[in-house]
Nucleic acid binder design. Structure first.
Length: 567
RNA sequence: GAUUCGAUAGCUCAGCCGGUAGAGCAUCUCCCUUUUAAGGAGAGGGUCCUGGGUUCGAAUCCCAGUCGAAUCACCA
């Protein structure tokens, strides 16, 4: 690794600390008595006695050295607090090294230290800790980006480059404290839902991520391989089929917070792995489930914001119950003025064309309706709204509607123009379920890459009998985006999926030269390349092995030749 | 996958009529015992994303690529 001058300076400072007998990475526990936020909230000059001795630990975020006294800021998990170091306080004897050398020269911004002292207010009124003892806890070898906020609240030199923020989230979390809040809210959101579901007596369970058959949603999976069993396994795209097996097994209510994986495009709404909660409750239907969703999400909003009203972009979304309800056909009629409820496939295709909704031949009736809805309605639904009663063709796991022909008892909740949950009265007629799976196989043959596969074991399970059940799935990332006012899914994932950082490979002169020759051709016969390189056998061997080790080139043997191929 | 925009010092950015690479903060040296975007004096720091091309000369113009962002498409 190439070290910058600043890297070297910090490494050097670390060595000097050691020479002065200071361990830059001590092992002993450091007993913290107070936190930054707590002191700033509670301190008052009349109560100075209560803050005669406080101990804090954290990272140094700024320094203002004024000769033999200094101000600096310490950042702990709760925030920042200023501290004041005076040479003659921390070095009462002749030896002034701790201040002059260690504090002023060897300690840098970014280092983690412990401070002990008393709390006071400076002449300008800033609550600060007057340090009497300073302990190095961890020497930092990398300089931090240093955003600063001026008196008007303007941030200067902010660390904003999304690529760096996502790739080095740890730095993002250090210098952009609001990011830490976003992720705390995300966890609170999950905690609220978990508490709510536990209080209802439902059982949190875990089901397989590696599955021999993937199912429960319309999506393309990730494929992997198990060596011992020598078989293909898929990463789950949904939990549905396993959770329903548990309802067959006799639990009244089961739920799972789970990472699911879909091998599809990435965007500000899509990450290849994402989090869902799925819930199944026996002896209930989709009407009952709508009420649960309203109540649970309203509770999330209140727990996170203290109110049902949540700011999202330039809008305000109010999660107060009850939410608006539309059937899918009503919604389409509302936004397009066209009643499609009685149309056949040809008429739907014609209508879609008229509305400028793109169509192709793989689309069946259900898919066409879904496209029209997605194109013309979904984005307009800002306030939380339930859309109910979907076409049977696009809901192969949902129960047929008790009164409306061709529809199923399904709903989605939509907020800020995006689906936040999907639920239905679960199909528990095994004969009908088999037929629906078979229809999916047909769609697959027509070219629908997301059509579902037929799961014989799941069918066997419901042949034993699954009670009438209501099922629900909520996209946690999407909900977290709304609840934290985040524009991108990457802002609610600590480590969003990204392409790997480009390896910076340092090549030898010979390797560079051979690579240069190869780059002109892309692919060359090994003997030709070798003679063009004009190296000794030994040097040639070293260069070509270096290139293949760095995965810049590969040597491939065919029946007739030995080729070197540029990667 | 498509289109548009971007990549210059550790961070944020300027330079882009082609002519030896700049600012603020950070870093280093010195001064400064209640400052707060502390201040003052001085110094160092760059494969201008990569590779080609045009040119006497390219950070700047052209082509290709890498990475990223935004919008759209598929999707939760």
């Amino acid at each position: 690794m190439q070290l910058s001058k600043k890297d070297l300076e910090r490494r050097n400072a670390k060595e000097q600390m050691k020479q002065l007998g200071i361990n830059p990475y001590p092992s002993e526990l450091f007993p913290v008595t107070h936190y930054a936020k707590q002191i700033k909230q509670e301190f008052d000059e009349r109560k100075a006695d209560e803050f005669k001795e406080v101990t804090l630990a954290g990272r140094i975020m700024s320094r203002r050295i004024m000769g033999s006294a200094s101000f600096a800021e310490l950042q702990d998990s709760t925030g920042r607090i200023q501290f004041y170091v005076r040479r003659d306080d921390i070095c009462p004897d002749e030896d002034k090294n701790l201040y002059n050398t260690v504090f002023k020269k060897l300690i840098d911004i970014g280092d983690i230290v412990g401070i002990k002292g008393f709390v006071f207010k400076t002449q300008v009124g800033e609550t600060s800790v007057h340090v009497t003892e300073l302990t190095v806890l961890t020497k930092s070898l990398k300089p931090l980006p240093l955003p600063k906020t001026d008196a008007e609240g303007n941030v200067h030199d902010a660390f904003t480059d999304p690529e760096l923020r996502y790739r080095q989230r740890y730095v993002d979390l250090i210098v952009n404290p609001k990011i830490r809040e976003t992720f705390k809210k995300r966890t609170q959101l999950v905690n609220t839902m978990r508490t709510y579901l536990n209080d209802k007596g439902y059982l949190e369970v875990e089901t397989p991520i590696l599955q021999p058959l993937y199912g429960g949603a319309a999506a393309r999976p990730f494929k992997t391989h198990h060596n011992t069993l020598d078989m293909t396994l898929y990463l789950r795209i949904a939990n549905e089929l396993y959770l329903k097996r548990l309802i067959v097994g006799g639990y009244d209510g089961v739920y799972e917070f789970s990472k699911d994986f879909r091998n599809e495009g990435m965007s500000r709404f899509h990450n290849p792995e994402f989090t869902q909660v799925e819930l199944y409750v026996a002896y209930k239907d989709y009407n009952w489930m709508m009420e649960l969703v309203e109540e649970m999400i309203e509770k999330v909003a209140i727990d996170l914001h203290g109110t049902t009203k949540v700011p999202v972009g330039d809008k305000e979304i109010d999660f107060k119950r009850p939410w608006k309800r539309f059937t899918m056909f009503e919604a389409i009629e509302h936004f397009t003025g066209i009643d499609i409820s009685e149309m056949d496939e040809a008429q739907l295709k014609e209508t879609a064309r008229k509305l400028n909704v793109p169509v192709d031949d793989t689309m069946g009736k259900g898919k066409l309706i879904d496209e029209i809805f997605g194109e013309k309605c979904e984005g307009n639904l800002i306030q939380p709204t339930f859309i109910t009663d979907y076409p049977v063709e696009m809901s192969p796991l949902a129960k047929r509607h008790r009164t409306k022909e061709g529809l199923v008892e399904r709903f989605e909740a939509i907020a800020n123009g995006k689906e936040i949950c999907n639920a239905f009265s679960e199909l528990n007629d095994p004969i009908d379920q088999r037929r629906r799976f078979e229809e999916q196989l047909e769609l697959g043959k027509r070219g629908d890459a997301e059509a579902m596969t037929l799961d014989e074991d799941f069918l066997r399970a419901i042949e034993y009998g699954m009670p009438p059940t209501a099922g629900l799935g909520i996209g946690i990332d999407r909900l977290a985006m709304i609840m934290t006012n985040s524009k991108s899914i990457q802002d609610v994932l600590f480590f969003p999926q990204m392409k790997p950082e480009k390896k910076s490979v340092v090549l030898s002169e010979d390797e560079e030269m051979v690579l240069g020759l190869l780059k002109k051709e892309g692919k060359m016969d090994l003997e030709i390349l070798k003679s063009a390189a004009n190296l000794s056998n030994k040097k040639w061997d070293k260069a070509i092995k270096g290139l293949t080790r760095h995965e810049l080139a590969v040597v491939k043997k065919t029946d007739t030749s030995l080729d070197v191929i540029l990667l």
